[in-house]
Nucleic acid binder design. Structure first.
Lengths: 333, 333
DNA sequence: CTGAAAGCGCTTACAG
DNA sequence: CTGAAAGCGCTTACAG
């Protein structure tokens, strides 16, 4: 089979301990180190990580559990996490739950079995609740989605402020009947819905909203349901999948944007700037979320008993044609 | 720290061997199994995968090395691979190279060190070439991109046929000056370019193309370069990032599609159907690519010496407004 | 069916 | 700086 450290030792005429030291940080004379390197080359030796981890009791791995690998928000965050981990000499074990609490539980168990050094997690609401009862054995940083209050370090967007900014903008542009579609599986959806409702109330407007599964098809159905309650003048969608689904529904019904319906949402994906008109969105600082999550994790590893920290990042509104000022008269074709 | 199998054995009043058997497939009496399960519950025991792998000499893991986790093509394939692996009781170790041969080499080394059971890989051209000299120690299946001929199982799109279909369609719609932008890092880009050139020749048309890095920004620059050689009537882009970059360049120049320029490319991403007009694309069977890759891997594990197999899948052309028939007269605003 | 023992491939005190 | 020995937490022939 594959060469082991013993084979290398034999080829180099040294002990296995010396091979281990030469490959690691131990003190070895230059002469022996060279012999060992040559023997490594000749034998094609590759260390066995399972053995190394078992012996050293260090996995050298960060776990990253995300809700949807197909969502550019999460891939953007994953990139940043991986870059920071790589710099620190750590590996990333990436898992995708598809918003399924059962898969989340299964991956949480896996992370324990892998004895990962730390865990970065974007939990569904169901898992966020359970996290308090059965906290993982390693440090955890929550990203994008809130967990049980005060128990875990977290990096979150200021969702209430972001929703408020969108509603304020729509109101300023002349829209009043503003409806909302929010993801039902995440605490983030709840926070954005709260921000929406509070801001509508502040403006003295009646809210009209639905919680739906975070998928484009669900948004189409949700939009149809909202429309049956009275055609809205504008729709706010709490993530890019819902935004896309809403746009598809709008196109299917032949509605014009923004003349018949204004549209705003979250995540500045390339397509939101390519459709006509462009869609107004809240841009999230993906890379910063990933970096901050790793920073919190490292600090937690250094100081396990430090107080729990919550990092709140602000989104940035990107205003486009989908929320142009409302024309009260019927628009002229 | 965490409980080990010894702790469970002590709590259950049995030997570690019995615990191991109760948790695995070994023969254990129902009574002892129940005792063990209760002890597992009490101690909160989770098996240590590093120890299990070291002892059993089985990683239970498939490696998946992809060129770009941000490309929906690859996330789609990854989903299918993970689903098939999960069904087989295997884990997936997912790595993202960002088209960087150095990172590819580093991840190939990692896969050896993890002793993964098998490897699914979408290599850059640079790595594909090197694969012949230093073949990995485990079975390898290439996806999306060709490798050294006849050495590895592979699942590929029929790229020449797909390019030909797009060129034939453009020609049938009345376009003649058809330019091409192709990704330079992958063998796929080369195959699509070949198909483009051969089909242009078959129609007696002069080809005009550029190889560019597979990024939207590079496509904008590449499109500018092509335009300097004479404004094309149509552009073919060999993947969705290049397609998006071309569309952005077209928008920036104020060109109308298809009146000033027809556009066609690869990958049926949602945005290609949402922009106006929709963009004609070749849809790839993402899930099928992932499934076939896993199937080839399993067969290879079962029969290491079976002949090398190459699975060729066909794309499906989705025709949209971006390639509507050419109007020879200046279009009327 | 069950237990005692060996050993997977490493790293790391312990001596020298 | 170097080597012999122990041991990380499991699984698996080997006996019984």
């Amino acid at each position: 089979m594959t060469a082991s450290i013993k084979d290398v030792a034999r080829a180099a005429g040294v002990s296995p301990a010396t091979v281990s030291r030469a490959l690691g940080k131990g003190p070895v004379s230059e002469a022996l180190r060279a012999q060992v390197m040559e023997a490594v080359r000749v034998t094609g030796y590759r260390p066995n990580l399972a053995a190394r981890r078992l012996r050293s009791q260090e996995s050298g791995t960060i776990g990253l559990i995300l809700a949807d690998i197909g969502n550019p928000f999460f891939t953007g965050v994953a990139r940043a996490v991986e870059a920071a981990a790589y710099e620190a000499g750590l590996r990333v074990l990436l898992c995708n739950t598809d918003e399924d609490p059962e898969r989340e539980a299964s991956y949480l168990a896996l992370m324990q079995e892998e004895r990962v050094t730390g865990l970065i997690l974007a939990p569904t609401r169901a898992t966020a609740d359970r996290l308090a009862e059965a906290p993982p054995a390693m440090p955890v940083v929550l990203i994008d989605r809130p967990g049980p209050a005060g128990l875990f370090d977290s990096v979150l967007l200021d969702n209430a402020a972001a929703s408020a900014a969108l509603v304020d903008h729509l109101v300023a542009q002349g829209y009043r009947r503003i409806a909302g579609l929010f993801g039902q599986t995440s605490g983030t959806g709840v926070e954005r819905a709260e921000g929406y409702r509070a801001t509508m109330a502040r403006h003295g407007l009646a809210p009209s909203w639905r919680f739906v599964p975070p998928q484009a098809e669900a948004a189409e159905a949700g939009f149809a349901a909202l429309s049956r309650e009275g055609q809205p003048e504008a729709v706010l969608a709490s993530n890019s999948l819902l935004l896309m689904g809403t746009l598809q529904a709008v196109r299917a019904k032949g509605l014009r944007i923004p003349a018949d319906l204004a549209l705003a949402g979250f995540d500045n994906e390339p397509w939101t700037g390519l459709v006509e008109p462009g869609v107004t969105v809240i841009e999230q600082p993906l890379a910063e979320i990933g970096r901050q999550a790793m920073a919190l994790l490292f600090e937690r590893l250094r100081a396990p008993d430090a107080p729990v920290r919550k990092v709140m990042l602000s989104g940035r509104a990107i205003l486009r044609g989908s929320t142009a000022p409302r024309r009260v008269l019927a628009s002229m074709l």
